[in-house]
Structures are given as C-alpha cells and as structure tokens.
Design a protein around this nucleic acid. Structure first.
Lengths: 118, 118
DNA sequence: AGTATGTGTAAGTATTTGCTTACGCAAATT
DNA sequence: AATTTGCGTAAGCAAATACTTACACATACT
C-alpha cells in the first residue's frame, strides 16, 4: 500500500482482509496484536490495513497504555448503504430470489483461515 | 487494469468511474460509445470498465447489429447489501443510543434526526 | 466495392496496492 | 537499569490497476 490519499469507504471495504478486520472488531474490540493473530500475514500488514480503516472512519483507536484497541464505528458505511439503496428497487423488481439468496449468505459457516500463527 | 481475474463486486464498485457507469446505465441503457461520451477518458478505458462490470454481473450486454447496449442488472449488489445489512443494526444502535442520550440531556421532545432511516 | 462506424483487445506505462523485512521507540515488566 | 512487549513506519518489491495509443474486424452506409 502507499498509505496516502485513500480514505474512500468503497475502496476501504474492497479488500477482503479489511472486511474481515471489520467483522472481527465488531464482535470484539481488540488490540493490534490480537487482531493480527487472526490473519496469515505480518503484523505490520494488519497495521497498515487498520490505518486505512481509521482514515476513512470505520475503526477508531483507543490507546490504553502501550496497547491500541480497535473498535468498529461503522457510520461511514452509510455512504455505501445509501448508494446501494438507491438501486435496490431497481434490482428487486427483477429479482424474486432475493430472500433465498440472503438465507444462503447467512448460512455460510466461518472458515478458519489461519490456525497456527503467532 | 489487468482485466483478468477480478470479478469481485466489492472491487468492481470501488472505482468511481464504474459506479458512475452503473448510474448512467440504470437511467438508460446505452451503447458503448454513448456511454464513453459521458467521460473524460478514452473509449477503450470505458470498454474495459464495462468488461469488469459484466464479468461480475452488474451489467449485461445486448448486441444489436454492431452496437452493444449496456443494461444494468444489479442483483450482484446483493452481496454488498447483505454484508452491510449485517452491521446496520450495530451502527444504528449506536446512533439511537446517542439520540436517546441527547434527548435526555436536552429534555427536548422529538428531534427529527431519524427521518429517512429504516 | 469502398468507406465510415462501433467495438474488442493488445501492448506499453505510470501509479497504486498489498505485502515483506528492518528498524525505532515508548510503555510495561523484571 | 535492562529487557520485553506493542506498535508505527520506512524501504523495497511484485502484482494489480487505470489509463493510453495502435490496430483488427465486423456491421452499416454510400
């Protein structure tokens, strides 16, 4: 990452790792090391993702001593939500299988991607 | 663009040009030249964006003679919508809590902050 | 038939992205 | 005081991304 000018929410959630970070932090705020423990990549990599997420306001950091706790603050998702909502009627007119689809989504089990890391 | 393996919807809508293409095509299906006329970039650039959008199913092409009409088919946005919906309560809860708090300390009846939300 | 139009695609390029390792520094622990 | 822990950030790199121009090739028009 260049870690510069990007604080666009659409861009932020385009990366699967960042979406997963959001999912983890929503469930439980945690510090950066704990967060990184869930992934198959280095701690700095996660740190950089978190930086992007904070820059666009999806995560806030609460410093506690030397630890930095990441909490979700998803208001910025409103921008995406609003963009989608404006088209929702358009596509729902044409789609009768929406509920089926949503059920399918919800039933997807969580995969354990990164078992043994430290 | 590399125009290869990417057909991820989150990635597709991360680009502002592609979001604009979707907006235009929803309003009115149009061929590629007409579409490109709306942008400050070359026709091939738009063609490549459209390719990505078709690959992830957000646009379908209807060939008419030598022209190719682009139509929106936004069902794939469900994936994004579903992802967002699962967090909606999370962030709206916090908004509601804030409003409750504000109303309490201000002793004011009925603010309209919530208008337009679901 | 010859030309114009609508379009896909290849090749080239600059920039951005997503990662790594290396290092530095402050807060906690010993 | 010395070490460990938690973390940010720089530098480097491969790959992806977003463009461009050049070209090929139908379909339509004359």
């Amino acid at each position: 990452m260049a870690y510069e000018a990007r604080r666009d929410v659409f861009q932020a959630i385009a990366d699967p790792t960042r979406r997963e970070i959001i999912g983890l932090v929503v469930k439980e705020p945690q510090n950066l090391n704990a967060l990184a423990g869930n992934f198959n990549m280095s701690r700095p990599a996660i740190s950089q993702h978190v930086k992007i997420l904070t820059e666009c306001g999806l995560i806030i950091i609460k410093q506690k001593g030397r630890e930095r706790y990441c909490e979700a603050k998803l208001d910025a998702l409103n921008e995406v939500s609003a963009w989608i909502e404006q088209y929702k009627q358009f596509w729902e007119q044409k789609l009768d299988a929406l509920e089926t689809y949503l059920e399918k989504i919800q039933q997807q089990p969580k995969t354990k991607k990164n078992a043994g890391r430290k």
